[in-house]
């Protein structure tokens, strides 16, 4: 004989289970979305570093800057591998060197189209990096929640990592 009280208890239990399940599914969905964004951001930063190296190579090839600047830039380009993960050291050095070279050449490093290409390339690196750090922050905040950790909601996905890198763009003349 089933008591009416028991029916209510079972219904309540069922409701709680459904709500918890929904919450977990939503959280897992969010984690997935955040990881997708992180992956895209990393890919994008890698791409922008590669494109910046190309723009620097073009600037050097144009020959409008002094030979020492050209030499230093070529050396910095040679120091970065074209394959594999982002090399924070080499990219940071290139960023710093670019700022010095542009300043030393009074903000002009080539004809308008080459200069604009380099300016855009440097901007894009800075933007991609800012957006990546943002994506990492949000994803890590989620990953560090006790419930997410305890229940392993993120599966075996690696923790997103900050890329601590100097990406500040040079100041070009107009």
């Amino acid at each position: 004989m089933i008591d009416l009280f028991d029916v209510w208890k079972v219904a309540l239990l069922l409701l709680v289970v459904i709500l918890v399940g929904l919450y977990l599914a939503m959280t897992a969905g969010r984690l997935d979305r955040l990881h997708v964004r992180y992956d895209a951001a990393i890919t994008s930063l890698e791409l922008q570093f590669a494109l910046r190296a190309e723009a620097v190579a073009e600037t050097v090839a144009e020959g409008a800057i002094d030979p020492v600047s050209a030499g230093l830039l070529s050396r910095a380009l040679a120091a970065r591998r074209t394959e594999g993960p982002i090399q924070v050291g080499a990219e940071s050095e290139l960023s710093a060197l670019l700022r010095e070279v542009v300043e030393a050449n009074d903000g002009v490093v080539g004809p308008p189209d080459v200069q604009q290409a380099l300016r855009s390339a440097c901007n894009r690196v800075a933007f991609a990096h800012a957006f990546l750090e943002e994506a990492v922050d949000t994803a890590l905040e989620m990953r560090h929640r006790p419930l997410v950790k305890r229940l392993g909601l993120a599966g075996h996905t690696a923790y997103p990592r900050h890329i601590r890198c100097d990406v500040a763009a040079p100041v070009f003349a107009d």
Partner: peptide
């Protein structure tokens, strides 16, 4: 500058798609 922002979020393989997940 806005176009540079666009380029810095485009990864190459896929563009904008309808999102139906979840």
């Amino acid at each position: 500058d806005i176009l540079d922002v666009y380029d810095s979020v485009i990864t190459g393989e896929t563009g904008v798609r309808e999102d139906l997940r979840g």
